[in-house]
Each structure stands twice: as C-alpha cells, then as structure tokens.
Amino acid sequence: MSQLAATTSTDQALVISGLTRRFGGVTALNGVSLGVALGETRALIGPNGSGKSTLINCVSAVDRWDEGTVTLGGAPIKGRDPVGAARRGISRTFQTLRLFDEMTVLENVMVAMHHARGYGLFSAITLGPRFRKAENRMRHEARELLALTGVERDAERQAGTLPYGHRRLVEIARSLALKPTLLLLDEPAAGLNDTETARLAELVRRIARPDLSILVVEHNMEFVTSVASQVTVLDNGNIIAEGTPAEVREHPEVLRAYLGSSEDDK
C-alpha cells in the first residue's frame, strides 16, 4: 500500500510527513503523511490500535517520534515538548476527560490563556489597575467561550462535579482559550448520547474558522460526516484512504479494515 502524500501547499497549516513511531518491535505509525489546511476540518478514523492516538500524541508533542517531521505554519514542532506545542497554537482535548476537577469551570478555561497579557506580582498584590484589567478581560473571554459551548451557567461550579456531557463541552471551551491555530479533538463524542452528539457536531461546525484547522479523531461516522469535509483513514499505522466522507465510506480498503476488525462497530 503506497502512502497518499499530502499536498503540500502554503495554505497547509499542519503538515505531517513520513511520521514513524515505534514502540519496541511494534510500528504504531509507519511513515504517515497528512496535511490539514487552514480552515479545514479533517477527520481521522480507523479501527482501534490503528495509530490515531499515537498520531495525536505526536502532533501535540506529548510523545516523540522516530522518523519524519511535523510542521505547523511551516515551522517544525519538536517532540516531547507539549508546552512549546501549546504556545505555538496546538490545542487538544482528551479521549478521557482531563479537566482540573478541583478548580472551577471558569478557572479551567482561564488557566489555558497563556497568551493573555500578564501583570506583575506587585500589581496583583496592590490590586493595581493592570491586574484588574487583565483579570477582568480573561474572565470575560472565558465566559464568552463558555457561552459559545453552552455551559456558561456552570462557570462557578467545580469542574469535577459537572455531568459528563458538560465536562466535554468545558474541555472544548478550554482548548479554544489557547487561541489555537490547530485544534485536535480526540474522540469528542465518546460517551455522549445521540442528542448530545448532534449538539456537539453543531458546535464543531460553529467553531470552525478560516484561520483554524481542526483534526478530529472519531469513531462515529455520522458525526464525522456532519463535521468533516475530508477524512483520512488509518489502519495498522498506514494511511489506507483519503477523501470525502462519502468516498471513504465506499473505499474497499476501508471496508476491509473495518469489517476485518471485530472491535469497532460504530
């Protein structure tokens, strides 16, 4: 199976080329190349163990890789440097929720605003105008993001006490607080019911902007079809198909990969 090389053009925000990641003798990613254009929402699908999570972990620089490059806006991303990746505009959510449960919803969102204008400790201790202005602005922006995702009424609650579906939405609000140029959504519909999934799809379409690339890893094909214009299919660490949701659904390799695996039924 030959790789489907991503078309590298200037409007590609994220370019992954020849990405290989091995864990001992297992090759989790085998020379994967893929691009996400600015303004594009691309889905990454594939059976369990196909390498989707490894790919997300590489792009968000949680993990490192053995070969290949990841670039954002033309500049390379370094492996095992999540702080650097976040500060370059790569933001992600997690398959298993990872909110700061002990903090309020509002604080969860505010904590991700690393780009916000700071203030000195002196200004904070003396409650100076810079401190108040910066804090008020962050608070205001955080509330706007919570309103966008529809959980503004939970703002003052402890994140850990929220119902599951709400926590998913808070995580999306928090990931947007980074002002990302690339948003990685790791199985955002996992654990949601049909109504919640439909609402989430609507939200993902709403947050799409011309200056934001979204890469969404998801099992739910209905969800994928409703949010993504392009789909990349991974199987055993290789890209086996790429195209529109409709094209990918009919692709023989994809059918084989999915029917051949007993794990995935969605």
Binding site: R87, R98, F100, V111, H114, Y119, L121, F131
Partner: peptide, 27 residues
C-alpha cells in the same frame, strides 16, 4: 490571595492537580 485570585495561583493549582495537562495548556 495570590494563590486564589491571580494567574500565578491558577497556574500553580493546575500544575498541582495535573502537571501533564497543565503543560498542554502552555503552562
């Protein structure tokens, strides 16, 4: 007050709750 009302405090709290996730927030 620094720990509960300021950005430094929030970042310290996030780091103490979950350092790995805090890093992904650019902290």
């Amino acid at each position: 007050l620094v720990l509960t009302k300021t950005r430094l405090g929030r970042q310290l709290e996030a780091t103490s709750v979950d350092s790995d996730t805090a890093q992904l927030m650019g902290i």
